[in-house]
Each structure stands twice: as C-alpha cells, then as structure tokens.
C-alpha cells in the first residue's frame, strides 16, 4: 500500500509537469486552433536561456529570477514566432501548418545546440530538496512546489480568460474569428498574444522539468512533449482543466506502469500512446473537451 502511495506521489510530481506543458499546448489550440508540435522545443530553448542566466559567471542570477526573465523573453519570442512564421501560413490548410510547426521543432532544436553546445547542463531546482514523511509516504518539497506552481498558473489563466477584457477577446477570436473582426477586435493581436502566453508557460514548464531529469540536453523535452500531448488528448485539446487532469493521469499511469509491469523494460513509454489511442477510439473529444454541436 505504501509502495502504491509512493508511486502515486511520484506520478503526481511528473504529472503536473506534463500538465504544465499540456496547458501551453491547449492555450495555443484554444486561441488559434493549431497544434504546436514545436511547443516542447520552444520550452527547451527558453530553459537553455534560464540555465545561461543562472550559470553565467557574470550574471549568476538566482533560479527564480532567471525563470522570470526567461518567461519574459519567451513571451516576446512567442509573439515574434506568431508574426513571422505562423502568420504567413495562417490561412493555409492544417497540414501545412503542422509541417511548419514540425519544421520549427527541428530548427529551434538545432539553433539551441548551436548556441548552447551539445554537452548536458545542470539546472538547479527552484525548490529546496526537503522532504517529509506523511503517513509513511515520502513527500518532497519539489512535488509540493510543482503542484503549487501549477495551481497558481491555472488560477491566473482562468482569471485572465474569464475575468478580463483581453480574455474575452481571446475567447471570442478562438470561437469565431470573422464575427470577432466585425465587432472590432484586432484578431491578429489576439493570436499573437495567445502564442506569447503559451511560450511563456512553456518556459516555466521547462525550468520545472529539467531539474527532475539527468540534465538539460537537446533531447530533454522530446519525451515530455509526447506525454504532454497524451495529457492534452486525454483531457480534450480545448480544455485547460482537461490538460491538468490529463497530465496527472498520464503521470500516475506512467509511475504505476513502471512499478507494476516491471519485467517489461521501458513499459512507461507505451503509456502515452496507449492513452492517445484509447481516447481517439472511445472519446475523441477527450474527457473535458467540448463536442462541437452545430445547429443546421
């Protein structure tokens, strides 16, 4: 039982990480209707920036400050990517846009290696390495901190989308771009803002993920991106709440698979694909996704 609970905690820790990247994917999907396959690599690049800010002998910033700055840089970078790369193909077929984001995936990955080198970097965690034993289960400050960060992120996103004028505009453009233009919303600016926020969330996710891995390298985000996509598919690509729940389910399922299906090596890699396949078969809109109902 205690083993089970420990694995649950492990899964939760990983799950909130998948959730935070899934949230970035969902946000772009909600505002632009696009799946951004470069989301993980954008986060990778931002994380390299965070690492540089911390590691550089002249700057040597505290981790939290570095994360803040790299989120601002990512915000601007995300806006630029929307304007320069995505906007010219905005009205093309979805396939073209998917190819463009896959191209960005490769390009950003290579650029990151060219700038920051190919050796593995260590990024310290923003959380202390304290741990407590609660009812026989080890709870780390890392896990508690991650859950807290994710909760704060969700709350802020919800407030932004539901309670502000800009949020109303973002949701309007996502739902009906033509009518949004007709009421005077600058739809281009809203799409740019969607990408900017999403890139900043990716920067935050990256800085949370890397300290839990063996180190920051060019491949750091690739497995995570797959888990995040599984989380978003499970929760429903248009539902921020779904991204969070989906992320936690994926994380826990992965931890339990490692523990209990031990003889099969790398069984955890099957988990996201099994989930994606299952969701597509039985509930294509995901757990929380909205089925598009149209009156005719």
């Amino acid at each position: 039982m205690q083993l089970f609970l420990s694995q649950l905690m492990n899964g939760l820790g990983n799950g909130v990480i998948y959730a935070s990247l899934a949230l970035a994917i969902v946000l772009i999907y909600r505002t632009t209707g696009l799946l951004n396959f470069a989301q993980g690599e954008m986060a990778l690049f931002s994380t390299y920036v965070t690492w540089k800010l911390v590691d550089d002998s002249e700057m040597g910033l505290p981790v939290a400050a570095a994360i803040g700055i790299s989120m601002v840089i990512a915000f601007v970078g995300g806006a630029l990517i929307e304007r320069v790369v995505i906007r010219p193909v905005e009205r093309s077929s979805p396939l073209v846009i998917v190819i463009v984001t896959i191209g960005m995936f490769l390009a950003i990955n290579s650029i990151a290696q060219a700038i920051f080198g190919t050796d593995t970097k260590q990024l310290p965690s923003v959380f202390s390495d304290a741990a407590w034993v609660v009812g026989g289960v080890r709870v780390t400050a890392q896990t508690v901190g991650l859950v807290g960060v994710l909760a704060a992120e969700c709350l802020l996103l919800w407030l932004l989308l539901q309670k502000t004028r800009v949020g109303l505009g973002l949701r309007a453009v996502a739902s009906n771009p033509d009518s949004s233009r007709l009421v005077g919303i600058g739809t281009g600016n809203m799409l740019m803002l969607g990408w900017a926020i999403s890139a900043a969330l990716g920067a935050l996710a990256g800085a949370m993920i890397v300290p839990m891995t063996p180190g920051l390298s060019a491949g750091s985000m690739q497995a995570v991106l797959i888990y995040a996509f599984a989380a978003a598919a499970l929760g429903g690509f248009d539902s921020p709440l779904g991204a969070v729940v989906g992320g936690i389910i994926v994380g826990v399922a992965q931890a339990l698979a490692i523990q209990y299906v031990d003889p099969l090596n790398d069984i955890e890699l099957v988990v996201p694909f099994a989930l994606i396949g299952g969701v597509l078969l039985f509930r294509p809109t995901g757990l929380f996704g909205r089925r598009v109902v149209e009156r005719v």
Partner: peptide, 19 residues
C-alpha cells in the same frame, strides 16, 4: 452564425461593445 458560439449570451453582448 453571427453569434460567437462559445461565449455566453451576456458575453456576446459585452464583446459587441468592444470598441
């Protein structure tokens, strides 16, 4: 289909006053 489907009725009116 001139309405913004995913917004509530009241939000549709508020977004109408965007300018």
């Amino acid at each position: 289909r001139g309405t913004i489907d995913e917004l509530t009725v009241e939000e549709n009116l508020r977004v109408g006053a965007w300018t």
